[in-house]
């Protein structure tokens, strides 16, 4: 108590000044219109800037969650697009509200590991059989192909990249629907080769290349790339076409795994006839 009194005696003058000044500023802020507005605006500015900072921090900590959510949303949109592409003839049969009527289902996936400098390149996805991934499913991004699933463990899956010597994917040129096979010659990871297109078909530089949908792995009409160069090797009956990919396989970090709900049905039906 004595100390408090001593403090008052010593700093009473200053305390008194601050008290009276406080009263004066209170009067200014409460009874003068323009000063009142400025005061409210300034305090608002301060509080909003503080709020903004906290918001930014919260958003940053939720970034992973937001990313996952966006990827799932993207997957849903893409699968609707793909399915409509396939069933374009009778759109009326698609009930866009129910996911069950769609032929293809997409599983969002993250790429943990990938190579692109070797002759035979592979990728690893951070999702496995727990998430519904099975061997022989296609892997795509929003604007291109990635590869085909080979092996699956509970939490990871191994994907054969399109940059692999054994990867052969059926593709077609959009303009005239000419079919060919997409392979990689091992040189430039951004340019693949479309072979087996006979030389009587006209192919121009800049033509768009899509997937043909002749296999159960990739649906019809996925974007692949554009024709960059057309050469006809001596004595050959088919073109050798360089296709520049839309998506850069070097800078991938997310992908979608395509689940074809009727692939088993199709494969069984087709193998029955072969076995005859």
């Amino acid at each position: 108590m004595g100390n408090v009194l001593l403090l008052l005696v010593r700093f009473g003058y200053h305390l008194m000044f601050f008290l009276l000044e406080g009263i004066a500023i209170y009067l200014i802020v409460n009874y003068n219109q323009s000063q009142k507005e400025i005061f409210i605006n300034s305090t608002n500015l301060f509080s909003t800037s503080l709020n903004d900072k906290v918001d930014g921090m919260v958003k940053f900590s939720n970034l992973q969650q937001t990313n996952d959510k966006l990827q799932a949303e993207n997957a849903r949109l893409l699968e609707r697009f793909i399915s409509e592409n396939v069933n374009a003839v009778d759109l009326t049969t698609i009930d866009t509200l129910s996911q069950d009527s769609l032929k293809y289902h997409l599983i969002p996936a993250t790429i943990c590991n990938s190579t692109y400098t070797l002759r035979n390149n592979n990728l690893t996805l951070c999702q496995g059989s727990k998430d519904g991934i099975e061997p022989d499913m296609g892997v795509i991004t929003d604007k291109g192909l990635v590869g085909i699933v080979r092996n699956v463990s509970p939490n990871f899956s191994r994907v054969m990249s399109i940059l692999h010597s054994q990867s052969i994917i059926d593709c077609a040129i959009k303009r005239n629907n000419a079919h060919g096979s997409l392979i990689w010659d091992g040189n430039n990871p951004r340019i693949l080769n479309l072979v087996d297109i006979p030389k009587h078909i006209s192919v121009l530089e800049g033509d768009t290349v899509l997937t043909s949908g002749y296999s159960t792995i990739f649906p019809k009409g996925l974007l692949v790339g554009t024709v960059k160069s057309v050469t006809l090797p001596n004595g050959s009956n088919s073109y050798n076409i360089g296709v520049e990919l839309f998506s850069d396989p070097v800078t991938l970090n997310t992908a979608y795994v395509i689940v074809n709900k009727y692939s088993k049905e199709q494969i069984t039906l087709e193998s029955e006839i072969i076995n005859e």
Partner: peptide, 19 residues
Amino acid sequence: DMFYNSPGVHTAALLITSY
């Protein structure tokens, strides 16, 4: 301030001067 119709403005300034 009573005459200038600006409660507190002259007071706050004069307090600083006095201080």
